[in-house]
Simulated assay, not measured.
Amino acid sequence: MAIDLSWQVPGDAGNLLSINAWRFEGDGSGPRVHLQAGVHADEIAGMLVLHHLLPRLQRCQQQGRLKGCVTLVPQANPFGIGQFRQGKLLGRFHEASGQNFNRAFDHSLAMERPASNLAQWQKSLVQLAADADLVLDLHTDDEALPYLYIHRSFWPEQGLALAAALQVDVVIVWEDGGDGSFEETLINHAAPQLAATVELRGQADVSDALAQQDADGLWAWLCINGVVDEVAAISEWQGDAVDMGCMETVLAPRAGVLVFEKSLGDQVEEGERFARIIGRPGDPDTEVTLHAAQTGRLVTRHRERLVAQGAVVAKFTGTRLSDSYSGGVLDP
C-alpha cells in the first residue's frame, strides 16, 4: 500500500491547508523518484496525469514489480488552488505577497524557521524531494507545444530518454538561473541524477486522452530507469534542443486585440510576420504587425486574445543568441 505523506501548512487566513502526497515503496533496488504537479496552481494538466499514474503504481506495487520508490504530489500548491476571483483561478502568483509560486525556494530552504507560511510550504516541498534521484516538476504554458526545461548538466545524457518517452517537441537547455525555482533549488542543494521541468502543452490542454498519453510516457520512462520491472520501448526522439539564450521571446509593443497568423509548431523565417495587434478596433492606424526575430519554430502563444502591453506574445526556437536575452530565466 502507498504511504500517505500528506501534510498541512497554515493558510493566509490562519486556516490549515492540506497537501496530499503518496509514496510507493519498491524493493529498494531501483532509484528514488519524485513527481509533482501544480506548483503553479492554474496549470492543471499535470494534476490529471498523476491522477492517472497513481492507480497504475499501486497495482505495480501490489504485483511486486516496483523496484524503486516513487513519491507523487498531484496538487502541490494549496495556496493558489483557492485563489478564485470572479470565476477565474489566479494560481501563478501568491495573492497575499505577489510572489511567483515557483520562485525563491532557495531562500525558504535557507531559513531554519521559515518567516512566512508560504516559505514554510516551499521548504517542506523541497525537503520531501531532497533524497530523490529523479525529479520531475509538471507545468504548462499558456498555449504551447510539449517541451522540457532542463539544466545543461543533464542534457543529453540523462534527459534524452525523458524527451523521447514523452515525445516532446522542444528541449530548452538552461545553465544560469538565479530565480530559486523548485528545480534549481534541488540542483543546488541536493544531488539528483536528473531534475527537470516538464511543460505539458497549454493550460487548456486538459483531457483524459492527453493525460493518459503523458502517463504512458512517464511510465515508459520509469521502466527504462529501472523503477518498474517491465520492458518498455520508446521511439527515437525527433525534436529540437535549443539553448535558452537562443529562444526568442516576443513582447507585445502595445495593448490590443491579438491575432495570430501562425499556428503552434509552424516554422517561421527571420523577418516573417506571425501575428498582429489591433490597438483600437475600427482604427487601422493602431494596428501593428509582429515579425520573427530569427528563423525558428513557434513554441508558445499567449492564450488570451486581448493582450496587455509588455505581455509575452510568443516564444520561438532560434539558432543564435537572441538580441533580447540578458541571462536568467526564460519567463518573468
Score class of each variant (00 low, 15 high):
residue 81 I to A: 08
residue 70 V to T: 10
residue 201 R to H: 11
residue 169 D to R: 13
residue 295 T to H: 11
residue 278 I to K: 10
residue 259 V to W: 08
residue 56 R to G: 08
residue 328 G to E: 07
residue 185 T to N: 04
residue 185 T to V: 07
residue 71 T to W: 03
residue 276 R to E: 07
residue 172 I to L: 10
residue 36 Q to M: 13
residue 118 L to M: 07
residue 323 D to R: 15
residue 225 N to P: 05
residue 270 E to W: 06
residue 18 S to R: 14
residue 206 V to G: 05
residue 62 Q to L: 15
residue 11 G to F: 05
residue 45 A to T: 13
residue 57 L to A: 04
residue 4 D to C: 08
residue 186 L to C: 07
residue 100 N to I: 01
residue 149 Y to G: 00
residue 76 A to T: 10
residue 237 W to T: 08
residue 172 I to E: 01
residue 283 D to V: 14
residue 45 A to C: 15
residue 245 G to R: 10
residue 23 R to T: 13
residue 153 S to Q: 15
residue 246 C to G: 03
residue 27 D to L: 09
residue 18 S to I: 07
residue 53 L to P: 06
residue 67 K to W: 04
residue 175 E to K: 14
residue 304 E to P: 00
residue 319 T to L: 12
residue 206 V to H: 03
residue 119 A to I: 00
residue 247 M to W: 04
residue 330 L to F: 09
residue 64 G to S: 06
residue 238 Q to H: 13
residue 246 C to M: 12
residue 192 P to R: 02
residue 100 N to R: 08
residue 114 P to E: 00
residue 216 D to F: 05
residue 259 V to I: 14
residue 281 P to G: 10
residue 287 E to D: 06
residue 304 E to L: 15
residue 329 V to I: 09
residue 203 Q to V: 07
residue 98 G to Y: 07
residue 94 H to L: 02
residue 291 H to C: 13
residue 198 V to F: 09
residue 212 Q to E: 14
residue 243 D to F: 07
residue 328 G to V: 08
residue 41 A to L: 08
residue 282 G to Q: 13
residue 162 L to T: 01
residue 215 A to V: 08
residue 138 L to G: 03
residue 244 M to D: 00
residue 260 F to T: 09
residue 211 A to E: 05
residue 157 E to T: 14
residue 198 V to Q: 06
residue 60 C to I: 12
residue 158 Q to K: 13
residue 288 V to P: 03
residue 186 L to F: 06
residue 312 V to R: 13
residue 81 I to G: 02
residue 269 E to R: 15
residue 210 L to W: 12
residue 9 V to D: 00
residue 59 R to D: 11
residue 217 G to I: 05
residue 241 A to H: 06
residue 195 A to R: 03
residue 118 L to Q: 03
residue 18 S to W: 14
residue 27 D to N: 15
residue 284 P to M: 10
residue 260 F to K: 10
residue 308 A to S: 15
residue 59 R to C: 08
residue 288 V to R: 11
residue 37 A to D: 06
residue 66 L to A: 03
residue 25 E to Q: 14
residue 208 D to H: 13
residue 195 A to P: 02
residue 318 G to V: 07
residue 211 A to Q: 02
residue 245 G to L: 05
residue 311 A to G: 04
residue 141 D to H: 12
residue 145 L to A: 03
residue 45 A to D: 05
residue 64 G to I: 09
residue 193 Q to E: 12
residue 154 F to K: 01
residue 237 W to E: 01
residue 207 S to C: 10
residue 332 P to M: 02
residue 330 L to E: 04
residue 102 N to H: 05
residue 290 L to I: 05
residue 72 L to Y: 07
residue 129 A to T: 03
residue 67 K to H: 12
residue 176 D to E: 12
residue 166 L to D: 01
residue 166 L to S: 01
residue 168 V to S: 04
residue 89 L to S: 00
residue 136 L to K: 03
residue 27 D to C: 12
residue 100 N to D: 12
residue 234 I to V: 15
residue 302 H to E: 09
residue 29 S to P: 02
residue 61 Q to T: 04
residue 89 L to K: 08
residue 3 I to F: 10
residue 46 G to T: 06
residue 97 S to W: 02
residue 46 G to P: 07
residue 299 V to T: 07
residue 198 V to C: 11
residue 308 A to D: 15
residue 66 L to N: 04
